[in-house]
């Protein structure tokens, strides 16, 4: 396997203050809680999980868009968490973000040429006189006409705006991109266009992606490996085929069972032996004491009976259950 380009160790991002002497009950959101993972050069690591489980926060804290509470993020050997101010700014162009809502993230008063040209200018990637032609090159790469450069974001459809968002990220010449639900706001037929585009760009430019989405089918298609999050924790991580064919964590199993497959015959088969997950995700302000999933887990009794472990008081560790297949569940410890 290639080298990791990003190594995340014991990373936590807790929002809110721990209670002081006079303050009321503690309102601490453990949005990301002790996450460990590596992203290898040239791969796409998919990150899935239901809304609020901490995907965006994890992506943002890897890119230092918010300073993690604890832990380290090594990017090619440098711990980004320790970098401040100028040192961090100097490296920033190397890792970029693509957002879900490209409209909200594009300045409506700037022309496309300036939106895409800005990172080139800030990071002094090209002489000023060449920026325009570089912008046109990138527009072409993302499948947009050259004359779009002189227009404004509102003149474009959702899919086109996402292409502009991608172009802006590429303009900084990154090698690592966090794409935060880049296609969730788009229609099905447009989603496929953007997925294909991102795959082509990855091959052409040797990019590494952390691809965040809640649609597992999309993530399976685009990712080499996949991490499943629940309540701020990574529950399972392995290659994308294995996640589907041999999911180990009870949450992954339930999540897969809940996703409808566009095939009526298969759906009838699945319905006959589908176990629906009861209840809802607990509040991240008040997560369960033991395993994060214990309030909904259909297999916690099995753990108690076979291993004499009480999942609601003892948290499992994230460990390698099979070669290259990591999970956090007492069933495998």
């Amino acid at each position: 396997m290639t080298e990791p380009i990003v190594k995340v160790k014991n990373l936590s991002m807790h929002f809110g203050q721990a209670s002081g002497f006079f303050s009321g009950p503690q309102r601490l959101v453990k949005a990301v809680d002790n996450v460990n993972l590596e992203v290898f050069e040239g791969e796409t690591l998919g990150l899935v999980g239901e809304s609020g489980c901490g995907k965006s926060t994890l992506g943002r804290s890897i890119l230092q868009l918010c300073k993690p509470t604890t832990g380290t993020v090594q990017y090619r050997g440098t711990d980004l968490v320790k970098l401040e101010g100028k040192a961090l700014r100097k490296m920033r162009n190397r890792f970029q973000m693509i957002y879900q809502d490209p409209y909200a993230s594009l300045n409506p008063r700037m022309k496309i040429a300036d939106i895409i040209g800005e990172p080139m200018y800030i990071h002094q990637l090209h002489p000023r006189s060449e920026i325009r032609s570089e912008v046109e090159k990138i527009l072409k790469m993302v499948g947009l006409a050259r004359d779009f450069a002189d227009r404004y974001p509102h003149e474009f459809s959702g899919g086109q705006r996402q292409r502009i968002g991608i172009a802006r990220a590429l303009a900084a010449q990154p090698d690592f991109i966090v794409a935060d639900e880049p296609i969730s706001a788009l229609d099905v037929s447009i989603q496929a266009q953007i997925i294909n585009l991102m795959r082509n760009l990855q091959q052409q430019l040797k990019l590494t992606y952390l691809f965040i989405a809640h649609d597992l089918a999309v993530v399976r298609h685009i990712s080499d490996r996949m991490a499943v999050m629940y309540l701020g924790k990574v529950m399972e991580l392995t290659d994308s085929n294995t996640i589907y064919e041999d999911p180990l964590h009870p949450y992954t199993q339930s999540l897969l069972a809940a996703i409808p497959i566009p095939d009526p015959e298969k759906e009838r088969e699945r319905e006959a032996n589908r176990v629906l997950l009861d209840g809802e995700v607990p509040s991240p302000e008040n997560p369960p004491e033991g395993c994060a999933f214990c309030t909904r887990c259909p297999r916690k009794r099995e753990v108690f009976e076979t291993k004499k472990i009480d999942c609601s008081t003892k948290a499992p560790t994230f460990a390698e259950a099979k070669p290259g297949h990591w999970t956090a569940c007492h069933l495998y410890t």
Binding site: I195, R199, K266
Partner: peptide, 21 residues
């Protein structure tokens, strides 16, 4: 076109999706 443009959870393919342009 819609059906072909969908990535499938139950079958991974290395081929690009058939997008409707």
């Amino acid at each position: 076109g819609l059906l072909n443009s969908l990535p499938r959870l139950d079958a991974r393919s290395e081929k690009p999706l058939e997008a409707i342009e």
